[in-house]
Design a protein around this nucleic acid. Structure first.
Lengths: 179, 179
DNA sequence: CGAAGAGGTGAATCATGATTCACTTCTTGG
DNA sequence: CCAAGAAGTGAATCATGATTCACCTCTTCG
């Protein structure tokens, strides 16, 4: 039995895989899923395009994982908030700090396989909000309202945007939703 | 000078153009912009694919027009509402009656040229709501909240959905946003 | 070292769908 | 009817980008 996977080769394999996921994440955060072609991901990760397929059976599978990880990070941050105002502020601050990523997670059109992850993501977000607000519908409205205000008309970069004021207004607005 | 456009040929030309726009609209209303290929539009309109290009210089231009018309119809309906509750109800009823179309107008990823129309569309919607509610931000939140509740998690067809109850809840929710 | 299995490569191939274009078919007015 | 200017046609062409694959190189262990 000439070859057997060893700890070191296993680690190397995992490292390459992580490098690919990381490169994909950076591209998504920089220009959305649309800017992340397999060729671009491979180039950024420093591997050949074919190598990506040694770790993921398809582009959709790779990006589903990228989406899942990024979304989980966001949801965790909001879920850790003790009250509505803090949750809203966390959501907003993080989204404004990475608008492209927020847009990719919330609104960008994506492959059906990735879309399935988004569904789970939205549900998780609503659940996070529902723990502090009353019902499901209010939680959904919160996610929608915050999303529209943030990644909608305001998303094209405006250097003149007063983030603090926006966040404050948004929190006020969201409090009103909390019956 | 052997040939000159006449009223009749002009009318025929317009009619064909309208047929193409109509076919495109139907396809979008049935399956979103993604389901509307130039070939499919041409087939439905009863013309050859090449003929579409006699009336529109590109696919994007055709769909920008489709979007603009559909969006205007929606905005007009909401703008005619005398108060917030009526406006919200109008928005919701119409969206629920044509979920695919609502999704295409509100959230589906589209060509940049069409996206520009969407930007105008959202602004118009916010303006319509702003006339009855106080400020810009509240109006944006309304559009987002309604959109999320309607075309978000609820969009996959559910025959068991109680529309009346949903609309009633939504109106209640939106009234809270109205400071 | 040598065989076997695994990872890596990147040019070639495929798939999808928009766009073009050489050609045919109307329309019109002389 | 004829010439000239549209409009119509749809198969061929292009563009883009994912996926494959024949061929290397590296690791492991007898």
């Amino acid at each position: 039995m000439p070859y057997r996977a060893t700890e070191r080769t296993e680690a190397r394999r995992t490292a390459t895989r992580e490098r690919i996921v990381g490169a994909a994440h950076e591209l998504v955060a920089g220009g959305g899923f649309g800017a992340a072609s397999v060729a671009a991901v491979a180039a950024r990760a420093g591997v050949a395009t074919g190598s990506v397929y040694r770790h993921f059976s398809s582009k959709a599978e790779l990006f589903a994982e990228v989406f899942r990880r990024a979304a989980q990070r966001e949801v965790d941050a909001v879920a850790a908030a003790p009250d509505l105002a803090t949750g809203v502020e966390t959501f907003a601050r993080r989204a404004l700090a990475g608008r492209r990523l927020a847009w990719a997670l919330l609104a960008e059109p994506v492959d059906p396989v990735v879309e399935a992850e988004r569904l789970a993501f939205r549900r998780a977000y609503r659940d996070a909000f529902r723990r502090v607000v009353g019902d499901e519908l209010t939680a959904a409205a919160l996610v929608g309202a915050i999303g529209e205000v943030l990644v909608g008309p305001l998303s094209p970069t405006r250097p003149d945007l007063d983030e603090d004021a926006l966040v404050a207004d948004l929190v006020t607005l969201c409090k009103r939703l909390e019956a």
